[in-house]
Design a protein around this nucleic acid. Structure first.
Lengths: 199, 199
DNA sequence: GGGGAAATGGAGAGGGGATTCCGGTTGCGC
DNA sequence: GCGCAACCGGAATCCCCTCTCCATTTCCCC
């Protein structure tokens, strides 16, 4: 009897792997463009694949969206994790935020508000990744607060609102360049910082 | 020949007027609760009216949504107009914002982001009201800037992003009361103010 | 290079929801 | 009180989209 660990990823055929990647990429683009209005047929077409193939990889539209959300959380978590080694908590937090904002400016798919309404099933599927992100960022926040550099009123639970607010501003900037711009983001960041001379 | 001005509102029957109001009110509630997922049948049921009646008053779901958006713009514009008589531009602007935020906290239907994506047709139908709001608020903003009390970088075009950011924060507050809270809104407001001692 | 499991593709079933249609009802001017 | 337009209700229609099914094609191991 061969060793078959229950977590063995059972290797996929080369074409299946390739197609899955194509599908995810196509979906990312389309959801960024059309949001909820994106259709499975469109995804299939852009991925140059049949609808059946899309459904072989993702049993449900929600599953596909869930994967996209999970990917987004993974991405943010990775950025945060990279800043974790910075000893100063506030520097780490600020670095994470700025890097994330920059990424959002570049990639529309990162901008979509994600945590309220939309698709409950998709969100549920991405829950593990959301948790993981929460843990990493939460740790940075607590460190910054312990070091007295961040207002203690802020918690990880505030992050979604924070990100959504930032996303709104960034989206607006894309629409009309003449906009207040980055100053808004600076304001948001400043609001959390605790200066040496008091809050 | 009776005088029939082309803009004459042609009087409606009493029951028609009553039903129309009921429909709008029901729709406002449902869209606040379910957002885009709201169905015409639900609206009809909550208004205690047949679907046909809903369609008699609003030929399209978009038309109904458009009316709701128009109402929202009208509401905001009225608040702004009330502050127009205040001679100090910044005071007027701040008053308008605070009053509007307070209203958003109370009424979920005011909170929904409205200016991007969603339903282009509905937005188009509410365009006149949007314009009107824009004019009133724009005037206040310019006054505040002429008096040197507001950063000149801000324009009416920034308002949607601003409101959307505020909406995100307020929504988050509703979800978990332990949140950073109003300080966020203060930050946003502070960011536009120009203090006597420089920007 | 042959066999069979793994994948593919896309027509169409199925379901949900917006919109229509029209026989019946109601307000209102006379 | 009558008559008739305006209005109402809600079953039925129609369309759009997700998801299924299976004949056919493609990889991969021997």
């Amino acid at each position: 009897m061969r060793t078959v660990s229950s977590t063995e990823p059972k290797p996929q055929r080369a074409d299946a792997v390739r197609n899955r990647e194509r599908i995810v990429e196509a979906a990312r683009e389309l959801f960024a463009e059309c949001g909820q209005a994106t259709q499975m047929d469109d995804v299939a077409r852009r991925a140059q694949v049949g609808v059946g193939t899309v459904y072989r990889h993702f049993p449900t539209k929600s599953a596909l969206q869930g994967e996209l959300m999970a990917a987004k959380f993974r991405h943010h978590a990775e950025v945060a994790r990279r800043w974790t080694s910075e000893p100063d908590g506030w520097t780490a937090f600020e670095g994470f935020l700025r890097e994330t904002f920059a990424a959002m400016a570049t990639d529309a798919s990162l901008r979509q508000r994600v945590t309220w309404s939309e698709d409950a099933d998709a969100l549920a599927l991405a829950e593990p990744e959301r948790q993981a992100l929460s843990v990493v960022v939460g740790e940075i926040i607590e460190r910054a607060q312990d070091q007295g550099r961040m207002t203690p009123a802020f918690t990880v639970a505030d992050m979604p609102a924070f990100m959504c607010a930032a996303g709104a501003v960034i989206t607006a900037q894309q629409a009309s360049p003449v906009v207040l711009g980055d100053r808004f983001l600076e304001l948001l960041i400043d609001g959390l910082r605790v200066c040496p001379d008091g809050a």
